[in-house]
Nucleic acid binder design. Structure first.
Lengths: 355, 355
DNA sequence: TTGTATGCGTTATCAT
DNA sequence: ATGATAACGCATACAA
């Protein structure tokens, strides 16, 4: 009724209730027993003064904790959240963090150095770096200097930092071998982006030199372990439309057409299948297709794709758990996950040529 | 090399550099001119001591600003980010907020009241409430008492709060009228969720009493303006699979089958179309379908659906702009957006019966 | 169970 | 251009 100029503070409340500030403070934190009578008196005074509880900013300073965990995503948010794998990870992350954090701070991946990158000035207690590429290096450096716990999900962990990883290479090799076992020799691959520019097109050796996205490179390496010389096309992202475009390119010429395609994500695989259907190819009779992720694509049966299932939600959860550990003073531990092969109905032996 | 116990503070740096703390502070904030020589001395001392800049928590307290804007999304994150409209809004929002905020704090929509809801204790400067339903009321109340600027996107704004809205009812009526003009009389609708429980099924009058989601109700009202008695099925969310399920229900019985369906979102419309295709109905010859949103669905031509286009990105941007205004001390202004009709190829006059 | 005293690390104001 | 000083609002160790 009267606080037009200054918001009430806890000491105002204490004064009005006739107790000390520490008592009032304790009423709100609930960390110490308080006589019911005083408790009520304080609460009454608080509501009288329109006091809504301790100022989080002041509490942060005093406690040395803000309750906020930052998340740095590669690329624009739009892109990040279009990917079901990322979404699932975020879910696991928020789940695991629910007890130690009031929320997730989405940090933009520092556009082009506006002096102080958000990661350097956000009031957070810890940070999760997801699928970052280039800039991860400096981000990690900043975070480390700030003495902040950090976890990297599928980054390139040369360092001794806590990391959540996946057996991308082995998994990809497994998928490639599956095709090899079926007898495929003319095989191609559709890859995720190689770098932040997200260039589309055939991957040449020199393009690999500039490549920075570890996930793409690892999956590519696994593929090349089995098919060293097969053509690979990079895309601008894990999208059905991107797979469609790449598929059209690869399947366009009947002369050079592969009998099987290894897509680096399920969404890309779906796109490739659409491209095949467009030109009348049957899957798997005329073309075998494998994916990666094992996600549930909305609007797809999703039961049929031959792929590997990665524990996306668990990855996020593991990251959250490690953050929680580190926040509790224990050392973080890297966690490595493995995928599981899920046979579907999109692969078969190649059709006999000339028949 | 020696800070094993206590992190260096700005006054340590100042001492080491032989200047006052205020001078050191100013070097980092850059708000006042400092002689180049001292500047360098301070920076040198800082890097010597491993000082990485002002502690954000302390700065927040002193400034009264944390640089953080909270976003409250209805339901689980997983769900929220599956929706292209939400994603687009988030994009616009982060865009508009880039200058006044270091990041977006994703607040979980307080599951079941663990004493202190995150919205009450997060150190943020302002809050955006998106598509919230029930709980928005209390959220708004808390936020208001905290004296925090708040913007509601498509909530129900009985109050005098700043709100970003859309002409849901008019737009829906427009779509319905489009079908009416084509001659359709047997029409049904597939609706978004009515409440947080997300129950599926035919909407009956009593179910409407418990309904809390304004968007759903508004679009439904617009539809009912034209077709007061038409059957409406609610879904669990804006998903292709949900539209598919609802479509199967509505189209299952040839006797009662409608000649046109109004879906409350494009994703639902896509699902309905799939359901129609499943049972051999042609769109639009046998069934007309309209959507809502005008989004680009990955993996869909997306050129053909008859729908209304809503300015999702602009909605987010407007919210961000209002937050920025309010943070600058100006009053917030509600903004109302209108959709645009986009004719596609999924509507046509109904087929003549008995022929 | 309650009160006292301190300092968390900054930044803004005002002098100099 | 630089410095002294006073908050910012709270939570905790400790004493009573």
């Amino acid at each position: 009724m009267s606080n037009r100029e200054r918001r009430a503070t806890i000491s105002d409340v204490a004064k009005a209730a006739g107790v000390s500030t520490s008592t009032a403070s304790v009423v709100f934190s609930g960390k110490v027993n308080v006589a019911e009578a005083t408790r009520e008196r304080v609460l009454a005074a608080a509501s009288e003064l329109g006091y809504t509880g301790p100022d989080p900013r002041a509490a942060s300073l005093r406690r040395g904790r803000s309750g906020i965990v930052g998340v740095v995503l590669a690329g624009h948010l739009r892109h990040a959240f279009l990917d079901p794998v990322t979404t699932a990870m975020m879910d696991g992350l928020t789940d695991a963090l629910a007890d130690v954090s009031t929320g997730i701070l989405l940090l933009r991946d520092d556009p082009f150095g506006g002096e102080a990158p958000p990661i350097a000035e956000a009031p957070m207690d810890a940070v999760v770096l997801i699928g970052c590429s280039d800039r991860i290096r400096e981000a990690v450096e900043i975070v480390r200097r700030r003495g902040m716990p950090a976890v990297v999900i599928e980054g390139d962990g040369d360092d001794d930092l806590t990391e959540i990883s996946l057996d991308n290479r082995e998994a990809s090799a497994m998928l490639a071998r599956h095709l090899a076992d079926l007898g495929h020799t003319r095989v191609a691959s559709v890859a995720l982006p190689l770098g932040p520019q997200r260039l589309r097109g055939l991957i040449t050796p020199d393009r690999l030199d500039d490549a920075t996205v570890g996930v793409t490179l690892d999956r590519l390496a696994g593929f090349r372990d089995v098919y060293p010389d097969a053509p690979v096309i990079s895309t601008a992202g894990s999208l059905i439309d991107e797979g469609l475009a790449a598929g059209r390119t690869l399947l366009g010429d009947p002369e050079t057409r592969p009998t099987a395609i290894v897509a680096q994500s399920d969404l890309l695989a779906v796109g490739v299948i659409r491209a095949a259907e467009e030109i009348g190819l049957r899957v798997p009779e005329d073309l075998s297709v494998v994916g990666f992720d094992g996600i549930a694509v909305d609007g797809l049966g999703s039961h049929e794709l031959t792929t590997v299932v990665q524990p996306a939600l668990e990855k996020g959860r593991a990251a959250g758990e490690q953050i929680a550990r580190m926040l509790a003073g224990e050392p973080g531990e890297s966690v490595h996950f493995t995928v599981q092969f899920r046979p579907g109905e999109t692969t078969a032996p190649p059709a006999r040529p000339f028949r």
